[in-house]
């Protein structure tokens, strides 16, 4: 940045000047929810394939996860809709397919997510929510239909994994292809958002497990807040098989996420001046405090430590890592969307 440069623009278009601010809270929330759903799909898909179809057991990963995914996805799409400024024309998305536009890809992928998630959820729905199955016996029939066909189960699982990967990467590519904003100008954003999504999904499932376990000293206030959910899932002891797996998986995802984030920043720092300047926005600029504290310390490092302790049985499984990871995931999307819009190619004043 040359201090002896003055750049004066007469343009003062709303949302564009003084720095771009076209996207507010809706987009980061949407990206977060998209990533979360992608993570839920992948985990659900893998779990569905991993457990033998005949082995009927209630599964947070395979049922509650996809069900939550359906809700989150709808929420995300609603939030995305809120962001559109020409809302009445939204149907235009589905009259065309633009091969170069990640957003067009995304809108079609989103359509695939619903059936995949629904199929996955159906497979084990009766065990997961017996009350529901009691009222709608047809669910049991559908579940039987799926579980009796191994190939179908595998197909559903693979579909979930593939669509999940597509969705997760798409949330990052969406920003990554916008080369006009140097901070986003990285292919690593796709994998980064994918793994961030996976980590938030694993953390969410882990958190649900903790919440729904009737383990010693269930936190009273949490019980109060989420009693409806716990009643649905029927409180039972902490699933000692799944919880450590989820925590362990979450730790791997977080570690990979941390690595990708480092690579992402190193990539910028070793690139052109504008990219360096963009990375500086996070490292020491106006977003540094939020980045280091909320994304790195509280969103990744602290839950990593806590989950490691949990895995070592040094401490009990708690809701804390889940909340921290989810919060960190949201913070990551916010900070990248906001700082990205602030980064620009004119690396002069203004």
């Amino acid at each position: 940045m040359n201090p002896l440069t003055e750049l004066t623009l007469s343009r003062h278009n709303p949302l564009v000047d003084p720095t771009l601010h076209v996207w507010q809270w809706q987009i980061p929330i949407y990206l977060f929810l998209g990533g979360l759903v992608a993570g839920l799909m992948i985990i659900a898909g893998v779990r569905l394939i991993a457990i033998r179809p005949t082995q009927r057991e209630a599964l947070v990963c395979c049922t509650i996860g996809p069900l939550a995914g359906l809700v989150f996805l709808s929420l995300g799409m609603f939030v995305l809709f809120l962001d559109l400024s020409h809302k009445l024309y939204v149907w235009r998305l589905y009259t065309t397919f633009q091969i170069t536009s990640p957003m067009s890809w995304g809108s079609w992928i989103l359509l695939l997510v619903y059936p995949a998630l629904a199929a996955n959820a159906l497979a084990h729905l009766p065990e997961a929510i017996p009350a529901l199955a009691k009222r709608f016996p047809v669910l049991i029939a559908w579940s039987d239909f799926i579980l009796s066909r191994t190939r179908l189960v595998v197909a559903i699982g693979i579909a979930n994994v593939l669509v999940g990967i597509g969705l997760g990467i798409y949330t990052g590519i969406l920003l990554g292809t916008l080369g006009a904003r140097p901070l986003w100008n990285s292919a690593l954003l796709g994998p980064l958002f994918l793994f961030s999504g996976l980590s938030t999904a694993a953390a969410l499932l882990h958190g649900i497990l903790v919440l729904t376990s009737s383990g010693e000293e269930l936190p009273a206030f949490a019980d109060f807040l989420l009693s409806s959910l716990t009643r649905l899932a029927q409180a039972r002891p902490l699933d000692q098989k799944v919880a450590p797996v989820l925590a362990g998986a979450d730790n791997s995802f977080l570690t990979i996420e941390l690595g990708l984030l480092s690579l992402f920043l190193i990539g910028h720092l070793t690139s052109t001046a504008v990219h360096q300047q963009a990375a500086t926005l996070l490292l020491s600029g106006p977003y540094a405090a939020v980045f280091w504290i909320f994304v790195i310390s509280l969103g990744i490092v602290l839950p990593l430590i806590l989950q490691t302790l949990e895995l070592q049985n040094s401490i009990r499984h708690t809701l804390a890592p889940a909340l921290l990871v989810i919060f960190g995931g949201i913070a990551l999307r916010f900070i990248l969307v906001y700082a990205g819009q602030q980064s620009h190619w004119f690396h002069a004043l203004n």
Binding site: S284, G285, P286, Y287, A288, A289, W292, I293, S297
Partner: peptide
């Protein structure tokens, strides 16, 4: 030696 943003990180630590 460092700016406000860094001071917040230090504050946190």
């Amino acid at each position: 030696l460092f700016g406000d943003e860094a001071s917040f990180i230090i504050a946190f630590l």
